[in-house]
Design a protein around this nucleic acid. Sequence first.
DNA 1: CTGAAAGCGCTTACAG
DNA 2: CTGAAAGCGCTTACAG
Lengths: 365, 365
Amino acid sequence: MTEPTPRLRRSRSASPLPAPEDVVLPGKATINDIARLTGVSKKTVSRVINNSPLVHPETREKVLALMKQLGYVPDPQARGLAFRRSFLIGLVYDNPTAQFIVNMQYGALDALRDSGYELVVHPCDSSKDDYIDGVRRFAQQQKLHGVILIPRVSEDEQLATALREIGVRYVRIASIPLDQAASMVVTHDRQAGTEAANYLESLGHRTVGLITGPRRYRSTVERGGGFLAGLDARGIELSPDYIYEGGYTFDSGVAGAEYLLAKSPRPTAIFACNDEMAAGVYKAAMRRGLSIPGDLSVVGYDDSPLASQLWPALTTIHSPIRDLGHMAAQMLLIDEPGASPEATGTPRTVTPHLVVRDSSQRPKA
Amino acid sequence: MTEPTPRLRRSRSASPLPAPEDVVLPGKATINDIARLTGVSKKTVSRVINNSPLVHPETREKVLALMKQLGYVPDPQARGLAFRRSFLIGLVYDNPTAQFIVNMQYGALDALRDSGYELVVHPCDSSKDDYIDGVRRFAQQQKLHGVILIPRVSEDEQLATALREIGVRYVRIASIPLDQAASMVVTHDRQAGTEAANYLESLGHRTVGLITGPRRYRSTVERGGGFLAGLDARGIELSPDYIYEGGYTFDSGVAGAEYLLAKSPRPTAIFACNDEMAAGVYKAAMRRGLSIPGDLSVVGYDDSPLASQLWPALTTIHSPIRDLGHMAAQMLLIDEPGASPEATGTPRTVTPHLVVRDSSQRPKA
DNA sequence: CTGAAAGCGCTTACAG
DNA sequence: CTGAAAGCGCTTACAG
């Protein structure tokens, strides 16, 4: 037995309790330190950690006070091992634009801040047929607490099924409800598409072109479909050859515009289903010597930074991507002790809206 | 004692060994299953997992075979708890462009693929003075295996010191060597800046403007400094009022170009220290009715997607960001048993290079 | 409302 | 080259 050191360090005797300001622990404190120094069992400390109601208020206070004083934070690995799941949220996506990914990450992190959860990113290639295996292994090995699925992987029913089978929670972000409400964040792309149509019609455009995303994307159906429905409702019929199926890429926007601008009569306005393709429309128009918005109005979709960096600044649909990420992550934390009360009541729906800038005006007479 | 079930499931008897194809384990196999079914101790299995040389080749083979057959993967949480560190790599950054972040993530993930490590993202606000605390808590609580630091947080000596103090490994990506070689990935921005200068001079430009990033960024000093040095070496002296300190943002590019284009004589070329600012130059030039490259040559830096989406396509410096991320993550894994042999020999240096597109030409006579 | 025992799936000494 | 014991920091039954 050595003499007690002047400052108490993990002393073996449980009593008497040291004056709090005398406590110095080497390295990080553990649940054992809290239990010992506070005179309760580690199970009780555990109850406090996990917000169990079965703790006497005074006990709770005492424990919380010491945890705060020592800067104690439970070890997520140890908790994870015992819980048989981790405190990690996975973000799974295929290949959206950089801005989309980053905003989604920021949104998710907004919700995760100070929650004890961290965000693990997992891009994948959904064109490979073993990509589901990859996601499954990722989720299973890391024992993820939950997964956020972004279009287009969010639209893959097989992925959702695989995740359900291994018991991993997920939230899917998509433009229509594909799953039970508790696992969906829905963005009303259709409505936004219609808003674009209404806007162009109200300006007086009668001959318009549409550049969509790939047919297999749900967002294509919604954005494009909403746009067509909007025109239709206002008595404008858009002939199929004024529709071009793009790939959500800049180059496909150029190609689409080149196709549409060669038509006769030439459209006075083009709605591109994302901003990158709209930028492509700019290029094609400029090459042809057409001025925007003088000769051609252009409306995009996303409101990425690109939209305000083009010249003229792009009229576009603002999609609150960061909010989507926030909501999705929040839903994954709902059953947590510390979950914000609003979380449950938060609407799982988001409606993008039109932002008018300088790329659109009335058509020339 | 119950009768042995037809299919062996965690049987209590260690012998005789079951025919491998008869083994069915509920849920995930553990080190105990491997040990029992293979007839060795779990310590030996552990040695195999950790690539210890102290295992008889035959034993190793036998163990590896069973692990493969059962699809056994050691639980990172349990390993982490015992190792006192996790298998997570943190990516810490302040606020670079979306494209930069995403490329960096892809690069890091390229190196982490199938390594058992995962990437946890941690954006932060380095303008707040408690941001270092945040990073420290993040690294400490998650017991990160290592951290990748991106400009501009990579340039913060206090952050590096804090990390060193708590014993967390890091790799800093920066434009000059700020630390010991093992924790640095250096991108030769200075050289690239000089290349831009040489190029413009060789085209015949004599009156040029420079839009830099914020003075406090190391990259500003390097890119801008290299550019000035390059001009100087070719006998062109750039007066200080042809230098504008921007903020790496689109708007500051607009402002910088407006400032420079109002000067007399008007510069025939502008070098902007990133693509976003170069896009701003486009806007300002177009507003003034100046054509690019007819009236003004523009050179950017980064080679982001934006560069090829502008019209005309932007001449710029290509920065291999994804490679930087790859190298940084690789360095963090170097001491791993499974680390690729090249890892150690990989050069920690990267040199960006000029990509000539359509925004630059000889000045008008 | 509280606690003692056993366990999550691994690894570190230590011993041979 | 191999293994039995103890432990990493928590939680789940179970008991009171």
